[in-house]
Design a binder for these strands. Structure first.
Lengths: 236, 236
DNA sequence: CGCACGGATTGATGTGTATCAATGCGCGTC
DNA sequence: GACGCGCATTGATACACATCAATCCGTGCG
């Protein structure tokens, strides 16, 4: 076994076509799901709490139940790159063997289901379909990582933001949330660290988009007005 | 089954500790490896040839035998983001289900082993350890993607280049290649599209590094002089 | 109720890269 | 051997974004 994260935010053209059964655990089905759930425990985290840090031994797997968790990589100095945001149903570090390669922190109060790695491995050992389910999850995560690389390397600030926001909205829609007034629980700094920008640029670019009538900024929320922002990147 | 790529280039702090048995196929061991190899075929590609394109149905898995292959994502207009370079032993798209989410092209003449997805699935179906081997590969690929996201989002041109070059060298070393005069078979444009820069910036930055005595530029090759370039990013 | 504090916003300014444009260079072709 | 072509290099210039610096504002707290 090894590692897995599963958070998406940038454009997701092909991966994740859609998903009724929200999370991994749900897709396992009734009995398996209950049995597996029982092997783990629910842990509550307060805002800013750290679930795990990069470099630490990866002793357990996580699944967000409530709240928002961000996965990130940092360096000595301070530079931070948020690799993704995890919403309820998302699995973290299922396949990580050895050490965590990212850190995870709760953005706000969060409820997380956690299971020791050995227990999960034992559970999966006589359920072959679990492994292939994991492979599917990881494949989606890799495709998502490709999206993010494209965004980080080849998009300008404005496009990074519009794509991020529409993608974030789509994820919440998939969770059945009301996104008329899109909730944006992460800070401007989090968004900046996710998109490879600075806080100031994020603010200014959002303000510019608001002036242009693309969106409306409210405390903790953003209303997406024009559908143009979609501008879904396609294939060549 | 789903998807997998497995190419790395940026810094790789924790993932891929080391690997004697170079590739996935080799690690399978004698009999399995021979049987699996027999199920596929070897295909030769000329420079610039396309192995597959993003959006196309992913009918087969690939493993580079000789040469260099690049994986990339493009957009309507032309923007391109190279997500990775695949060297001999690297597996491409093992777990992709549905459609390819990236394209692949041979950088120079390349020899690639290819196997229809169904055949591979059948082979793996009664060899459970194959799946977990795939999970391990994918986990490494995800960790690698995180490195690349960090580089794309948080590093300046100079650091992107030095990290890329040392990382590239390390990969070749792992393959047992002589890297005294580091071969750099990919074009400046490829490097630029990988690091989120332009060709001109890559040239200029390399020239600057040469002037500073960090490296020496030769046609198709680069000699890394100062070990400082290492500057291995660590954890916080 | 006034204060302190961190996040958000806006402004002034600097700079790292992109962009536009030439030139050079290696190589295959006729 | 001259031409053509793509890649590499270098220069001049523009601009997007970072940086530095205030101010504003919502919220918790004394």
């Amino acid at each position: 076994m090894t590692k897995l994260m599963a958070a998406s935010s940038f454009a997701t053209p092909c991966a994740n076509a859609a998903a009724q059964p929200v999370g991994f655990l749900e897709r396992l089905g009734g009995t398996d799901q209950r049995q597996l759930m029982a092997l783990g425990e629910r842990v509550a985290y307060a805002a800013q709490d750290i679930l795990f840090k990069q470099g630490m031994p990866a002793g357990r797997c996580f699944s967000v139940v409530e709240g928002l968790v961000c996965l990130y990589r940092t360096e000595l100095n301070s530079r931070r790159q948020i690799t993704g945001f995890a919403l309820p149903g998302d699995i973290l570090e299922i396949a990580t063997q050895g050490h965590h390669d990212v850190s995870a922190a709760a953005i706000g109060p969060a409820l997380v289901w956690e299971i020791p790695r050995e227990k999960f491995a034992l559970f999966a050992s006589h359920r072959p379909y679990v492994l292939s389910e994991i492979v599917t999850l990881m494949a989606a995560e890799i495709a998502d990582a490709h999206d993010k690389m494209f965004s980080l390397g080849r998009r300008a600030a404005e496009e990074k933001l519009t794509v991020f926001l529409t993608s974030w909205r789509d994820r919440l829609v998939r969770l059945g949330r009301d996104v008329d007034l899109l909730p944006v629980p992460m800070s401007r700094r989090d968004i900046a660290d996710h998109l490879g920008l600075t806080v100031e640029t994020v603010c200014r670019t959002l303000a510019k988009l608001e002036r242009r009538g693309v969106l409306e900024i409210l405390p903790g929320r953003i209303r997406l007005l024009d559908s143009e922002a979609a501008a879904a990147p396609a294939f060549a």
